[in-house]
């Protein structure tokens, strides 16, 4: 079965979805990602869906779940590059993905994750003092 590759970039994970998502692939991605967050001790997850043209409620929920799971494992999820049509569809489906951070492109998403990490580090530092 196909799997979506998960790349490690520093302490963030990068997932680029370039094929049409079907339900099994989505579930597999969710499992793989969970494992990888733990094994790589990742603090951020970047999901690039700029090539994704079709979404359904299952994929939408999957994104929400991934975000919730990573938050539980202390990693920030950022979904980047969502197409207008996809955004409209998700909103019409009633999935506003309120737990997910979003950014326009990978670059911006990476900045967002870096900023969050810096912030938490500063905050941790404050706690230590």
């Amino acid at each position: 079965m196909d799997r979506i590759p998960i790349l490690k970039l520093g302490n963030a994970l990068l997932v680029t979805i370039q094929v049409d998502m079907h339900d099994r692939l989505a579930t597999a991605l969710q499992e793989d990602l969970t494992e990888k967050i733990v094994s790589a001790r990742a603090r951020g997850v970047l999901i690039d869906i700029s090539a994704l043209e079709i979404v359904d409620s299952f994929i939408g929920r999957m994104l929400d779940h991934i975000a919730a799971i990573s938050r539980m494992l202390d990693a920030e999820t950022v979904v980047v590059g969502m197409r207008p049509a996809v955004a409209i569809t998700l909103v019409e489906l009633g999935l506003s993905l309120s737990g997910v951070k979003t950014a326009l492109n990978v670059e911006r998403g990476m900045e967002l994750i870096k900023r969050r990490l810096d912030e938490t580090e500063v905050a941790d530092g404050d706690d230590d003092e």
């Binding site: 980047v80 969502m82 996809v86 955004a87 998700l90 909103v91 506003s96 326009l104």
Partner: peptide, 12 residues
């Protein structure tokens, strides 16, 4: 609100 949510999903 729908418009706002859609824009947010795209990262704006």
């Amino acid at each position: 609100l729908k418009t706002v949510s859609a824009a947010r999903l795209m990262g704006a």
